[in-house]
Design a binder for these strands. Sequence first.
DNA 1: CGGGGCCTTGATGCTGTTCAAATAGAGTGG
DNA 2: CCACTCTATTTGAACAGCATCAAGGCCCCG
Lengths: 218, 218
Amino acid sequence: MYLAHAQTFSGASRLAPLTAADDLMSQMGVSLQFERDEEIYGQEEQADMIYRVVKGAVRTIRVTADGRRQIGDFYYPGDLFGVEPGEQHVFSAEALCQATILVLKRSALNGAAGAEVERMIWTAASRELGRAHQHVLLLGRKSACEKVATFLLSLIARTTCDGAHLSMGRQDMADYLGLTIETVSRMMSQLQASAIIELVGLRDFRVRNPRALAKLAG
Amino acid sequence: MYLAHAQTFSGASRLAPLTAADDLMSQMGVSLQFERDEEIYGQEEQADMIYRVVKGAVRTIRVTADGRRQIGDFYYPGDLFGVEPGEQHVFSAEALCQATILVLKRSALNGAAGAEVERMIWTAASRELGRAHQHVLLLGRKSACEKVATFLLSLIARTTCDGAHLSMGRQDMADYLGLTIETVSRMMSQLQASAIIELVGLRDFRVRNPRALAKLAG
DNA sequence: CGGGGCCTTGATGCTGTTCAAATAGAGTGG
DNA sequence: CCACTCTATTTGAACAGCATCAAGGCCCCG
């Protein structure tokens, strides 16, 4: 990674409009550039930084001793990540593609501005908990087909309206959904065969039948 | 349920010692009694209460439109629950057995005491997030056997040292682990056949080989 | 002693995994 | 711009783990 000058970022996402607090964060933090698959922070590192995606996308990931991977979540422009309970990170974070990340030291926060940022962090943590609960339901009680359908829908909801772009490869989808790469691939093919989605290359898709997709997602 | 006079509770759990703040909570809240399987709060109810288990045990549960159940977590004496992101509950909470629950209205909190309780709530939310992450890993990447082993271990860690008591039935275990009741039962039998645990009646067990159990849990 | 709920056990089938091979894309150098 | 190579993805076939269906047993409690 390499340093860039601290900058504000606007228009990255319709879901995270630029606010005074965002602007504040930009001024207080440092903007870093990461390459594809580069680690942003590691499992068991100290967790006193807070991160925001400015450009690109990020995954948080946990690897067990015997090599099984589980992806915690994906993050897009405007999203805060790196908020974890406990002193140390349980997940590591990696860039899905070339990404610009704003980094802030939590312990350095002070004053009214710091309090404002702390509020943002708590909001992010709260959203995180909600998403984790969704994730639990998905992993515990959904079929492979439902998992993939749910994933595609939430992807659309979080990124742009029509922009149906998969920032991640099939392996990352599989490790998020608790499936294998083959099963994910099969479900995608099946959705396409049912004319519910249309794959455009490997990394893009269009939803042709949103109703059917929503129904499959449950 | 029926009202009892507000009371402090001590010695319930070695993990949650009575502190000044606990005492505070007791004074500010109301203690209620619930019967087995009685609902404490419902899915989609307003979420401005905070709850603490005084005696007994609690499950949070989510039911989908087509009747699939997913248990979010179990709570034991000393634990706070009911902290959820968003205005409305996504989970409902039910008593596993006859239980005494301390209830507090969040919006009524004020002053130094209120701030102290708010801190406790945030701590609980943070712990909640950590546990949700553990749950995701368990559901996404563990086999039935590993799931059950992990569950038994975490149960022992959360309740008393030797007290290996299952507050919940097999169905609740299954709905927590993303399995069926039959599979849970088979795994328990298998653990017993391997002399790793010993079942004492239906609701109690002893760990005969903690090392082996930990190994199975991964 | 009898009834009902919960748990266990057995037999069978389906869903998703595993292993293996073919194909398609993306990047590179000619 | 095309051929080549490397990696990611798709597809197929066999298998395994867990679910489902169906009895049977245990325990609690009247």
